[in-house]
Design a protein around this nucleic acid. Structure first.
Length: 563
RNA sequence: UGGGGCGUAGUAUAAUGGCAGUACACCUGGUUUUGGUCCAGGCAGUUGGGGUUCGAAUCCCUGCGCCCCAGCCA
């Protein structure tokens, strides 16, 4: 799916190509990723990160990491650290260009003074409600503030006193003098500075006035000599203001370009909603393996490579769209299929006794570590008289096309022997608790010398050699394809998004697992989770299932029966 | 309905006046010691109506549909 990614193009790259051809930026490409440190990064941010850093990489340019920390009441140092970690983890390097909007507060203040001197800004005493009431509507123009025509000197004096902390929160703002009847609401004398007596995570109590996004962002871009300032579609309406500020100031003026943010079905990607999931304990923290946060995906077993491939694969346009979450899963599968070592692990054990096998004997069988990668070599698996197989791999009365074990049926145990079910043992309530089989000694390794075929191959673990583990099967967090449609996205939560198997049995090589994702053959890709694991027991979580055409067949059958 | 955007198979994404292509999904079949992987084949599309042109997804006109904007958030 991700082939040809290196030469994939998009409309922004075309703009860059044109700029390079015309010499607009002296063939310079300088982008930035400008998160506000008010939450954790998620898969949507990954698209933007890959875009900005990717464009810089492809065009021999640079990309800054810049924290847009202009609102002290929402921002925290904790988020700064997690964002740094996440961007680094994705594999991008901003070298020495880690910046903060707050580093430019002095300069922004000076620029505001310049705007006042030029008569393009004024200190306004209207309350927030009054400003709102005067803004007008989508179809009616607004009314000018009574403070709009204050003298430059008075504005200068008032602005200075705002800065000096003479006024309480909200009693004054600095506003641009543009046009209260502008058809673009953003141009109706927007607020430039507001008073916020709140400590800032970096500047402490140095400031009590803070710049608004529109004022700050363009200046940040300008100061850093950004060429292409890439943001999401909802800022398209802000571009005239971005341009107006920089034009009025007569400073270096980057080009703002908007693209469509990432949407995924069966997922919510919005800081506010993700926060709600955490706060209401629907999930186990921001890094819960079901969360679309980068920390959640990382913990789930997603690799930076798979996320970067995904981001490249979905492309960049200006169209609102919803990407099938299956594509994210596929990008992980694609990588893990090539790299993950194969092991055998039974999630729901069912005991099997090989009646014609010696009580004391243990033999070591050779198993391939990764059929996709011969370099990965082989390992030895212990085999003995008593084994575990998956409960789902035995049916007393199997339907047609069921290739697994049933009374009188013969199957192959992976890398071991052909076995035939001879006897079924049940408890008082009729549940199958053990099955007896015979094995064919001639089929050691999994092939029969007489050329006899079996349809099914089962994974298994030797009882005396089994490693105990807990395995968590995660499924999508939401049942509805578009969880945000309808009353509450919380109602769309999948009650079975985490199934815990406390009695899993794993082959011995998993006693001390590496910090990598394994493929449990026929079951999916699993990774040991450091948070849930204890000294007594390892906990594995499923990163993603294998494609399962049998499950699909069963589901279709169920649907056809109207179940 | 003021302004700003966007309309190409089920979902995404190419083609910028010259054969509508690719991926995922779906369906067939083949290979297979993972019902995995891999391979082959198939289904399926330009928002409607006009116009310009030898030729239109592309240019023009005109409808229709969807998204965004009335924070002292970003």
């Amino acid at each position: 799916m991700s082939k040809n990614t290196s030469d994939q193009t998009n409309f922004i790259q075309k703009i860059i190509d044109n700029d390079n051809a015309s010499g607009k930026w002296d063939t310079r490409v300088h982008t930035r990723f400008p998160p506000e440190p008010n939450g954790y990064l998620h898969i949507g941010h990954a698209k933007s990160i890959c875009l900005n850093f990717g464009l810089a990489e492809k065009n021999n340019g640079k990309c800054n990491l810049r924290f847009d920390d202009t609102n002290p009441v929402k921002e925290e140092e904790e988020f700064v650290q997690s964002i740094i970690e996440d961007v680094k983890w994705l594999g991008f390097d901003w070298e020495d260009r880690l910046f903060y909007a707050s580093d430019y507060f002095n300069q922004m203040y000076e620029y505001a003074v310049q705007l006042i001197r030029d008569g393009r800004a004024f200190v306004c005493d209207q309350t927030a409600d009054e400003i709102k009431d005067c803004r007008g509507t989508l179809t009616e123009s607004g009314q000018e503030s009574p403070y709009r025509n204050r003298s430059v000197d008075e504005n200068l004096d008032l602005f200075q006193r705002m800065k000096d902390g003479e006024f309480n929160n909200g009693v004054k703002t600095l506003r641009a003098r543009i046009d209260m009847s502008h058809s673009n609401l953003n141009m109706r004398d927007p607020v430039i500075y507001r008073i916020l007596h709140a400590p800032h995570h970096r500047t402490g109590d140095t400031w009590c006035i803070y710049p608004m996004y529109d004022w700050a962002h363009g200046l940040e871009d300008s100061i850093e000599r950004i060429t292409h300032s890439i943001c999401t579609l909802e800022f398209e309406d802000h571009r005239p203001l971005y341009d107006w500020y920089l034009d009025q100031l007569g400073v270096y003026h980057p080009q703002q370009i908007e693209f469509a943010r990432l949407n995924l079905n069966f997922t919510v990607v919005s800081k506010r909603k993700l926060k709600q999931l955490v706060d209401e304990n629907h999930v186990d923290g921001w890094d819960d393996p079901r969360m679309p946060t980068l920390s959640g995906l990382r913990r789930r077993g997603y690799t930076p490579e798979s996320i970067r491939n995904f981001a490249e694969d979905v492309g960049i346009t200006k169209r609102d769209s919803v990407i099938d979450v299956v594509r994210l899963e596929n990008s992980l599968r694609e990588e893990l299929n090539k790299k993950a070592p194969r092991v055998l692990g039974v999630l729901n054990p069912l005991k099997v006794v090989i009646t014609n096998y010696s009580d004391e004997k243990t033999e070591m069988l050779e198993a391939v570590n990764n059929p996709e990668d011969p370099q990965a070599g082989t390992r030895e698996l212990p085999f003995s008289k008593e084994l575990y197989i998956e409960q789902a791999d035995f049916m007393e009365d199997p339907p047609k096309k069921y290739f697994r074990l049933g009374p009188g049926r013969e199957v192959r145990l992976r890398y071991a022997y052909f076995v035939t079910c001879t006897h079924v043992i049940k408890d008082e309530s009729g549940n199958v608790i053990e099955i007896h089989c015979t094995y064919d000694p001639e089929t050691r390794g999994g092939n029969s010398p007489d050329g006899r075929k079996v349809k099914g191959t089962l994974h298994w673990v030797s009882v005396p050699h089994a490693i105990e583990a807990e395995v968590r099967l995660y499924d999508r967090l939401f049942l509805k394809e578009y969880p945000e449609n309808g009353d509450s996205f919380v109602d769309a939560l999948n009650p079975d998004s985490c199934k815990i198997h406390t009695n899993a049995k794993l082959e011995p090589c998993l006693a001390n697992p590496e910090n990598i994702t394994y493929q449990f053959e026929r079951m999916g890709y699993f990774k040991k989770d450091e948070k849930y694991s204890t000294n007594e027991k390892n906990v594995f979580i499923r990163s993603v299932s294998l494609r399962d055409s049998w499950a699909r067949l069963m589901k279709q059958g169920a649907n056809q029966q109207g179940v």
